[in-house]
Design a protein around this nucleic acid. Structure first.
Lengths: 214, 214
DNA sequence: GCAACCATGATTTTCGAAAATTATCGAATT
DNA sequence: AATTCGATAATTTTCGAAAATCATGGTTGC
């Protein structure tokens, strides 16, 4: 793996997890020291992140972490519903046995990690992402999957802090994931789409409360 | 404007217009000579284009122009219909007088350029793009507009060669654009969405014929 | 004859410094 | 006191070369 790829992965993680405050400048000298590499791979990573809208770039004035706002979150959420409901419909229509198996596997892996009490939170996030990707994986559209990845990262910036702030969950998220998987495996398109939509709207409600804390 | 931005614009144009054959390697030494600049701004541009899927990148093996295929075109077209119909609905719901005026202006400018016989074909493409963007501009969703731009560039790679190959048009494209604008200004959402969809499907039919020539 | 292997050349990737640009701060001016 | 101006510092952008990696072609050994 090249340094530029490592820089991309590290920076992305640090931005999504909020290690850098939104709108704070990402100075090359600082990043160079933090990640132990020269400017070239860092600029490369920053450009990729700019294309994903996780960082903003201004000509000759460098890069900043993108701002977070309720409006931007709502926008990303709306786009996500549009993209994911369509991708899910296609996936259910086109998916074969192997796809069904991968959904079952992803759900199982996610639940295993949820159960573990002192488990690695990074691993949990990875498996959550993997489950949602598995649902859409058979849609056959590279573009929709690409949009899914971008929107997932964009909303993750809001979801993670909200989850940490909210403390113990009243929702049974495992049950929600299970219901989605059941509908998917039963090829009940409309139910699956509705459940997925509900799932996101509930998370969104939580995040809204977190952003304008009350 | 920085060199990297110039490199991005030039490269993008040359790829979309087919100056580089699909799948041909984009070697830094060649590009450096062609555009008269060093590696750094070129790599920056190539990374941006990679994020837009106009070029592919393989670790330590450099960049290539993305392949063109009927399947990828159909995928982009499908995603475009999804994104643009939603954006158009939102735009019609939210747009104000200034937006209506900008649609009228964009349509007028496009028609003026269509009328000119020996006109600059670049200018025509710019205005065509501007008209379609104007339709969606009031949607209020940065994400949907971002997706629109990406998909527009992706499909443009197919549209331009098809138009050149097809010769004189039987379609009255001006009339199609006019009908869309009329429905939009009348705030007739369903008619506008249907007309926009038709507009793309007709272009798509043309392109399919061009790709598998018969 | 054929496959494995090494030397060579081509290419990408990375670094460190130079060039270009923007931001900062204090002095001079109104 | 506020503002403009210029010098200095900080930062980004770009270049050119060095390092690392991959592709090629010939050679050796079997």
């Amino acid at each position: 793996m090249t340094l530029a790829e490592k820089a991309y992965i590290s920076l992305r993680k640090d931005i999504v997890e909020g290690c850098f405050a939104p709108e704070s400048p990402l100075r090359l000298a600082d990043l160079s020291e933090r990640y132990g590499m020269g400017f070239s791979p860092l600029r490369e990573a920053l450009n990729r992140l700019h294309a994903e809208r996780l960082v903003t770039a201004e000509s000759l004035r460098g890069f900043r972490v993108s701002a977070r706002s309720l409006a931007e979150f709502e926008d990303a959420l709306h786009a996500r519903l549009l993209v994911e409901t369509e991708a899910l419909r296609l996936s259910i229509a086109k998916g074969n046995d192997a796809w069904e198996a991968s959904v079952v596997a992803a759900l199982y892996a996610l639940r295993q990690q949820t159960k573990r009490q002192g488990g690695d939170v990074d691993e949990l996030k990875t498996r959550h992402h993997a489950f949602h990707r598995a649902l859409l994986a058979a849609c056959g559209s590279d573009w929709l999957l690409d949009f899914f990845e971008r929107l997932y990262a964009a909303t993750e910036r809001y979801r993670i802090p909200a989850l940490l702030a909210a403390g113990p969950q009243k929702r049974d998220i495992d049950a929600e994931h299970g219901a989605i998987a059941d509908a998917v495996l039963a090829r009940d398109t409309e139910a699956a789409v509705a459940l997925l939509g509900d799932h996101y709207l509930r998370t969104a409600a939580l995040i809204r409360d977190g952003i304008k804390p009350g």
